[in-house]
Structure formats: C-alpha cells, structure tokens
Design a binder for these strands. Structure first.
Lengths: 325, 325
DNA sequence: ACTTGCCTTGAAACGCGTTTCATACATTAT
DNA sequence: ATAATGTATGAAACGCGTTTCAAGGCAAGT
C-alpha cells in the first residue's frame, strides 16, 4: 500500500504539499496539485484513516450504548442517531450491552481509549458514579432522565408521561391499576415507579406490588402478562404498559383467549408504535426518533464547538386515546 | 494524557519493556513489571487505541452495512452479529445506507481506508462490480444469496423458500397468487421473482405484474396492500408476503375492514416474527439471528486465520403452517 | 529603493504503541 | 572450561498523516 511519502516522491514534492492537496488546502500551485493527483491515481493511493485518527486526535466516531438493538424502542432511537450522524459525516460504533455492567464499562473504557469522540447512552444499568468517572474522557450524552445528576441528556419526562396516563385512568374510574415494565432499575423506570406511587396515593388507592409486571420488553412478554392476569385472584382493571410491543402482545392474546378489552381490562401502551395504531391501542406517543436525532446533535455540537448551551433537553409525550382505554 | 514514554520514564525502564508489561509478554522481571504497573496507576494511563490500530495495522472492528436498522429483519441479523462480535472482542461499526448507493460505496471506501478489518453486508443496492473492486481491501461477507458471483456469503436460499411456499399454495388450489416484496432489485428479490415465475409457469398460470406489491417493508405497508387489494378488479386469492411485519399489517387491517383470511385471501408471511406466531400467521421461518452469527464467525475466522474453508453457507427455511394459509 | 504582506514549499516534529534487533548476563549442556 | 540456550532489556525503526515553523519568491504600498 502506497503511503503519503511514496506519493511525495512520485509527484516530486514534499509530504506537506501532498497533505495540503489531499485535504484541499490553499497555497499550492496548480502544477503541483495536478502532479499529486496524478500520483494518487498512479499509485492507487488511499488514506490510512487510522493514521489520520492518530494524527488528528479525533475519529469522527460516536459510540452508542444500548442493551439490545433488536427492539423497536432502541432501534428507533438508533435510527434517529444514525440519520444525523450521516448528515454530519460521523460513524457509529455500536455497544450492545444486554444491561451487563461489564459491557457498559467496556464502552466507557473505549471512550477513554479514544476509540470514539463521544458516547450516546440509550439506557444503562451501571451506576452514576461510573459515568462521572469517565466524564473527563469525552462527551457523554444520555437518552434517559438524569434527575439531579449532572449529566448531559435528552429525554422524555417519564414521570409526567406516567402521571398523565395514570390520571386518565383514574378519571375513567379505575382504582385497580397496575403496570408492566422492562426492569425495575434505571432512571426511566424509577421515575415511573415514583409516578405510580404518587398518583395512586393521590387517588387514595394502595399500590400493589403484584400488579407490577417486570421483564416486559417484547411482544411475547405481553402474552405472558395476560396469562398471568387471568390467573390472578385480584385483577387490576387497567394496565399501563411501557412498550407498545408488549401492549400489542396483551391485546392480541386477550383477543385469542376471550378477555374483552377494554371492558375487562384497559390497556395504555407507550411509544406509539405503528402496531399500536393498527390495533387501536391507546398509547402515550414518545418521540424516539427525534430523541436519537437530538442526542446526536447535542453531542455533535459539543464536539465541534467545545461548549453546549443546554445541558438537558426534554421532549414531550402525549396521550393518544384510542380503543383500549 | 500520559503516554507510554512518560510511563517508561516514570518506571525507569524502556518503552519496549512498558509495552511488554502492558501486553503481558514474558521476559520481564517481576520488579520492573511492578514498577510499570505502579507508573500506570500513578499517571492514570490508558492506551490510545488509535495508536494501537496504526501500529498493528488492524482494528478489531467489523463494519455492518444495512439499509435500515429499524426493521426487525435487519435488527435480528444485527443482534446475531453483535452477539458473536462481543464474544470475540470485536467492535461493530454501523453503516446505515437506506439503499443509497453513495452510502454503500462510502462503507466500502472505509474498508479500503482500513477503518475496519472486514465488512458484513446485510443487503445492498450497489452492483457486484463495486464489491469486486474492493475485494482486495479486506474480507467482505454477504448475508444474501450471491448466486454465480464469487463472494463469501451466508444466506438463506430464498429461491427454494419461495418455491416451497408457492407450491404449498398451488397444492391448496390457489391459482391467483401474488406477492409483496420490499424492492425489486437485490439478489434475494431476484431469486424470489425467479421462483415466482417458475412455479407459476409450472402450474400453468400466468403471473401478473399487478399482483406484485412493491415497497413492502413495514407494518403500515401491509395496511396499504390490503386496501389496494380491496380496490382491485381481479384479486389474487393468496399472497406471499416477504416480511411478517407486512403480513401482520395485512391480517390486522383485513380484520378491521372485514376481509376474511384465509377464506377470501390466504397469507403466507416470512421470518417467523413473534408477531406472526401471536397472530397465527402461516409463515416461512428464517433464521436471521443465526445468519448474523454465522456471518460474523465466517469473517472472524477469515481474519484470524487468513483462509476460509467454505466460501458459502446456506441456512434452511421452513414453512410453518398456521391459520392464514 | 525599501518595507509589508501574501503565496509556495519543504524539513522536521508530532501523535503513540509495537516490533525488531542487538546486547548483556545467567544457566545448562557437552 | 567452553559452547549453546534462555532470560532480560533498551535503542531505534516503524506505521502514516498532520501540523508547525522557517524560508524564499514576488507583488503591492510608501
């Protein structure tokens, strides 16, 4: 593989001049410019991007940490990130963590090793101190509510979103309300748990632990939930379901086994997945795609200018009433 | 940021010795080894991975080219790739192309620039010559049927899969058969088109151009298809739908607008998405996850050993008869 | 005629970890 | 005692593009 020095020799100029030509800098005579391009052609030269990265000290790569890519929620955020990254000529490095703390730390470690210029965290399990420890190593932007923690983030106010949906159910007369969630830890989940406690207390209802269904991420989980629900002695009359995929699973399986929705069980999903629309599922619409886009733009702006105006940005969620609640 | 020379000075050894310690090579006295680790601690040193990449000439990064990540088909392949990549300590660089030839070429160009050690192509639009032109720049593995073309690939035989499903429909008495597909170009699509021609001709039926629905990728497209179907004068009695997402869209919308499936219209999906299972959609199960895993293992083996035993590997597809056909 | 300023150009340093090669000493085999 | 091995260690080269700095040339300004 030819390198820049071979080019210089071939074109009869210095490496500095070659570099200038290759990068389109001014102050090179037309004659030498031509000679360099001819050498490029002749030697079939291509830049070694690794050398560029080392020399420049930056890579134009942003890392994306997420638990699973094969989930509409995360792939939608990713799509949003990806679109913007493309626009600004950045590459994306994927860190699929499966919520394994080891892997999350590995991603942070890679930031510190300068494998990428910044990191977007879609969701995490590792504690806040870990992020704090890597703050000096490059921009980190979260796609989750960070509360009191001093991080850069673009997020949906899941507390408010949950409150909104819960109040709607309460107003409709529901008192036995439960919810389905992916996991109990994580900032989004905790905000939701808080909202659940608060609204139910406000309505004078005692929240029940067994009305919270954990591990609800995929369609199949919805099937499981409705089957558990059927087997319960005291059943909730309404469920908030933090993923439309799961909500769809519930609705479809309910239909199969003859549970009437919303008469016997009201369902409010989250995301506004096309599936929810098609099934007429009442849902809280969340702007995942924009979330990803904004997260990228935030980190990009940070990288390019070195400073950021807003540390945090909140995106709206809105309840779309359809047929299931 | 401290570098390896600072470490050497601090520990009172040479850079070569530091490198040996950092990489766990033998032939370093316990004493110096300790001194180096202490210096690492004291100076809070971390390797600059860019320098490692340049020095080693490899990055342990594999690129993945796909049109959209926000689609179950591709995100499932990605998940398979990702799982294996993690296992072997590789990073993944995402190239989302949207089937834009420019972007596909950009990915290939990055391979040539050595941004990554190899490239996995999940689906592409660019012509075969383009790939051929980059063959010397690193391992390229396709996740599509490559036919006569001399590339490395792991794929599902879509011709056979289509034949299988079509013959089933023919045997069931269908003569007016159509299909839904993402796009007409691309090797998988062409294999399917060929199968469609062949089986219909074999059954003595004339294939009709208007019974082929293009641009079918997402759930919403299914909705569109069934609406078009209703408006047709001569309707097919059965549709092969190359994505369960689309098939689900068809089935659900059909249910809404009162089209009886399979009585009025039989549907066979592809993928065996959980959604298909839940909806009882007859489908051709495709092992996407394994496909991704095998693609990664193939490229990995190639990278590590420099040679490959098999150039191509075929994965099976099998028809799962459920309720819609 | 002389200063100021812009255009061109190249040598050399820089970013930083890896690897090769030579050297020096301590063992073990003959 | 001598040759043959093995262990330990550092200097220097290497991978390769970018960037700084100094210098020479030339035209416009005074």
């Amino acid at each position: 593989m030819a390198n820049i020095r071979d080019l210089a020799k071939e074109a009869g100029v210095s490496v500095a001049t070659v570099s200038r030509v290759l990068n389109g800098y001014p102050y090179v005579s037309e004659e030498k410019r031509k000679a360099v391009w001819e050498a490029v052609e002749k030697l079939n030269y291509t830049k070694n991007i690794q050398a560029v990265h080392l020399a420049k000290g930056r890579t134009a790569i942003v890392g994306v940490m997420l638990p699973y890519i094969h989930h509409p929620y995360f792939s939608a955020i990713m799509e949003g990130i990806s679109k913007e990254a493309l626009r600004y000529g950045y590459q994306l490095l994927l860190f699929q963590t499966n919520y394994d703390v080891e892997r999350e730390l590995e991603a942070l470690e890679r930031l510190r090793m300068r494998q990428m210029d910044g990191l977007i965290v879609c969701s995490h399990e590792v504690d806040w101190e870990a992020f704090a420890a890597y703050q000096g190593d490059g921009p980190i932007v979260l796609c989750e509510h960070v509360g009191e923690h001093d991080f850069f983030a673009v997020y949906i106010d899941h507390y408010q979103a949950f409150v909104q949906a819960l109040r709607y159910l309460v107003k409709k007369g529901h008192r036995r309300i439960g919810y389905c969630i992916g996991r109990m830890t994580g900032p989004n989940s905790q905000a939701r748990a808080a909202a659940y406690q608060d609204v139910l207390r406000e309505a004078g209802v005692i929240p029940r632990r067994q009305w919270i269904f954990e591990g609800c991420l995929f369609l199949e989980d919805g099937k499981r939930v409705i089957e558990q629900w059927v087997a319960m002695e005291e059943r909730p009359s309404a469920l908030l379901v933090t993923s439309d995929q799961v909500a769809a699973g519930i609705v479809l399986q309910a239909q199969r086994i003859g549970v009437r929705i919303p008469e016997e069980l009201s369902i409010i999903g989250f995301d506004n997945d096309p599936l929810a629309e098609l099934l007429g599922i009442t849902t809280v619409a969340l702007p995942h795609f924009q979330l990803g886009g904004k997260a990228f733009r935030l980190i990009h702006h940070w990288l390019e200018t070195g400073n950021v105006t807003r540390k945090q940005e909140e995106l709206p969620a809105r309840l779309l009433v359809r047929d299931t609640a």
